[in-house]
Design a protein around this nucleic acid. Structure first.
Lengths: 206, 206
DNA sequence: ACCACTCTACCGAACGGTCAGGAATAGTCT
DNA sequence: AGACTATTCCTGACCGTTCGGTAGAGTGGT
């Protein structure tokens, strides 16, 4: 499949570095992942990484954009043949909640703290194009069909995204020993359907 | 004021270190803040910090617990004389959304990545006691009075907390130059009232 | 003398990043 | 065909800086 606009077509080594970096960055955050960690996990040497990517910040930006583009494609697929707004929202929610390495809120925080303004700009643009715009289209459609009400499409998109971000899977470390913390305060036992129904109908008695 | 259970009563130097560390940790995350950053910002030397706190992890745990305890007190105050569930939820939402350094989701992510299991346990306990339990009480009350429906109190507490976490202020750096990214994808222009009404009534046409 | 507290100076390890060059493939000239 | 060069991709060794943390020596109050 030829994938969307502007995919730079990484070679096998660069692609392996990118995938490894994606996993590590989303797991631990920008600062906690060293270049050494990445090259070790990707089984390449440091100069090889620096041959393909100019520096750590740039690698992070490319990781983030790559992740957003994949999320975008998966979301498009998830809403393709849903007959109504609720079905489309559930499809979107499933992607946003269960796709690995999809913690966009974490990603944005990292970006704001560690990236140059120019790189933040590139990332913000990708975020808008890949995440916000498709969501707004669905909301616009729901408003037009009378299934939604009370806000404009942009606000609805933001509200939905914010709600999902609160419940997005925070990628856990690979070590499988059950953490008591993860258990105690985990919020990820809510299904996409539950959250979409909260979004649509709320929790008040009627 | 004598504040709740078990507040260890820090001296002026330790308190200054704690407050400075709180701001920096919540701004940039655990790994991105060095001990040097903290001692510089708090205007003490490194051995002074290590005299009061055993190591970086422990300092982070104390920072987090301190922050949770303060949030707890503020939340208690915010719901004190609200007549109904909606009023109490709006009060809680205002605290969760607007209190500085209150990004509990960020804090939990950092904890899971960087703290020992034992310290994660302590933190999880504090989180449950200070954040989840009070929320559940409010939900329980709302269910009993018939204002809420459809879930048990624990699930309602988690749903509300998750919703708020999606919109919690992610502490911005002090530099005041407007970041385009922050502007483009900001979700924090939704009021506590808007989010509570989403929580209660949803967005579907009725 | 003692205790609570803070200091200067330092440690080994790890950080992001670079240098000069090796191995492999492909095109170019005689 | 065979020698030569250019380009791509990758590597071992190393750079200066910063990391979390410590040893040991004050300092002032009691």
């Amino acid at each position: 499949m030829q994938d969307s606009i502007n995919e730079p077509a990484y070679g096998p080594t660069a692609a392996r570095i990118l995938m490894t970096a994606t996993r590590l960055f989303m797991q631990r955050g920008y600062s906690a992942v060293s270049i050494n960690d990445i090259v070790q996990a990707a089984d390449v040497t440091k100069p090889t990484l620096y041959y393909h990517f100019s520096d750590k910040e740039e690698l992070f930006v490319l990781v983030a954009i790559h992740m957003l583009a994949e999320m975008h494609a998966t979301m498009r697929r998830a809403i393709a043949d849903q007959p109504d707004t609720r079905g489309r929202l559930i499809g979107l929610a499933q992607v946003l909640l269960h796709e690995p390495n999809s913690d966009t809120r974490m990603m944005r925080h990292q970006a704001r703290e560690h990236l140059s303004p120019e790189r933040q700009r590139r990332l913000a643009e990708a975020f808008k194009r890949y995440m916000v715009d498709p969501l707004r289209d669905v909301m616009q459609q729901g408003l037009a069909s009378g299934e939604l009400q009370g806000h404009n499409a942009g606000d609805l998109a933001m509200l939905f995204l914010g709600l999902m971000e609160g419940f997005q899977r925070q990628t856990a470390p690979v070590i499988s020993e059950r953490s008591d913390m993860y258990q105690a305060i985990s919020t990820d036992h809510f299904s996409a359907e539950t959250l979409v129904d909260l979004f649509l109908y709320g929790t008040a008695a009627r």
